[in-house]
Simulated scan of single mutants.
Amino acid sequence: MRIKKRWVLKDQAIFLKRLSSLLEKGYSLNEAMKFTAIDLSEEKKQDILFCLNELSKGVLLRTTFEKLQFHSEVLSYLYFSEKHGNLEFALREGGEMLNRKMIQHEKLKKVLQYPLFLFFTIGILMYISQSVIAPQFEQIYRSMNLKQSFLTEVLFFIFRGSTFFMVFLVLLFICGLIFYVAFFKNLLPQEKMRMSLKIPLWKKFALLLNSYYFSLQLSNLLKSGLSIYESLTVFENQNLLPFFRDEAAWFIRQLKKGDRFEVLVERNEFYEKELTQVVAYGQANGHLARELYTYSQFVLERIETKMMKWIMLIQPAAYLAVGLTVLIMYLSMILPMYHMMEAL
């Protein structure tokens, strides 16, 4: 059974945080879900009843949330909680993760909203200028036997080139889509990651994301009493995150050959180099779980800082592009008229 999606990210985040808060206060999962459902809509109350009914049959919480179409990262948190036993932590972290996504999305939306509106408006004006105004000016130049000034020729060239540029962008998008469907989609997870790390602006961000998630989930598994080998086996047995599943399989194969874990992390190209030092330090002092969790929080701060930096760079870049477009529009109308007045 698959329920029609009606849990938006905001609703999911609030629900998960309330559940984790009640579990922390000593409520059982059933009691927490019933209490949380009090002020929900009738549709969501039915979803909670469905969850409770599934749980009474022995179905895993992750499976019931999957049927409600909760976010995939929330499901992965719940999967690992089944192994380390800390459901309250998984629900809290899942809710906070969704909150971070929403905050970043809202900030990006606010940054881009006005520039995108301006681009849309100017795009219409550019089309009118290119299809109506520019041809008329060119016709007047020919009828009056006037030679166009250098700046006027440049502006007309920009107008003509804008059409080819838009066609180029459309063709580039189509080629990218064909590449994804025919080639990239069929690659193994490690090959996909390796190829994505070749993108300069994305590489650092991807390394941080990989390091954060791997260190966070591994720390919780180790904290529950599992060994490194057993924790990696948990990663290997899940299908929600194919990349980490295959990564765990690679680590396990190498560990069976006698390699040390910190050496394998150092040889791995998908994580930040600092992770090697954290693993070595944690194994040396006997607190690997603690060191990995602390490191994951440091990495999370770096991810959020980097995202905010990108968002803050987008707005001035967008306004600069809008300003240049407005200047071109203005010059395209003024310069030809000025040039013709000089010729008379």
Rank of each mutant, 00 (worst) to 15 (best):
G94A: 15
T63N: 10
S81P: 03
Q46C: 03
F70Q: 12
L87Q: 12
G85M: 11
K67M: 11
D47G: 02
T64D: 11
R92Q: 14
Q46D: 14
N86E: 14
F80P: 01
E88K: 15
L78H: 05
L78E: 08
E93N: 12
Y77E: 15
I48V: 11
L52H: 09
F70E: 11
E66N: 04
A90T: 07
K67P: 00
N53L: 05
G85H: 04
K45H: 07
L78S: 08
L61N: 02
S56G: 08
F89N: 10
R92S: 08
R62C: 03
I48H: 06
E73M: 11
Y77I: 04
S72P: 04
Y77L: 09
K44S: 08
I48N: 05
L49T: 01
L78G: 05
S81C: 05
S56D: 12
L91M: 13
H84L: 09
H71T: 10
G95M: 07
G85R: 10
T63E: 15
L49I: 03
V74P: 08
D47C: 00
F50M: 06
S81A: 12
F89C: 03
F65C: 05
E93F: 03
K45T: 01
C51I: 06
C51Y: 03
L52A: 06
H84V: 12
L78N: 05
L52P: 09
E82S: 12
K57G: 05
K45F: 01
G85C: 10
L75P: 03
Q69Y: 13
L52W: 14
G94E: 10
S81Y: 09
E82I: 13
L61K: 05
F65T: 01
G94Q: 06
L68I: 06
S72H: 12
E54M: 10
T63C: 00
H71I: 01
K45P: 01
L49C: 04
V74M: 01
Q69P: 05
K45N: 09
F89W: 15
F50I: 00
E82T: 13
Y77M: 14
E93H: 14
E54S: 04
L60P: 07
K83W: 09
Q46R: 14
K83L: 02
N53V: 00
I48G: 03
E88M: 07
E93C: 00
F89M: 04
E88S: 15
E82N: 13
Y79L: 14
G94F: 12
L87K: 09
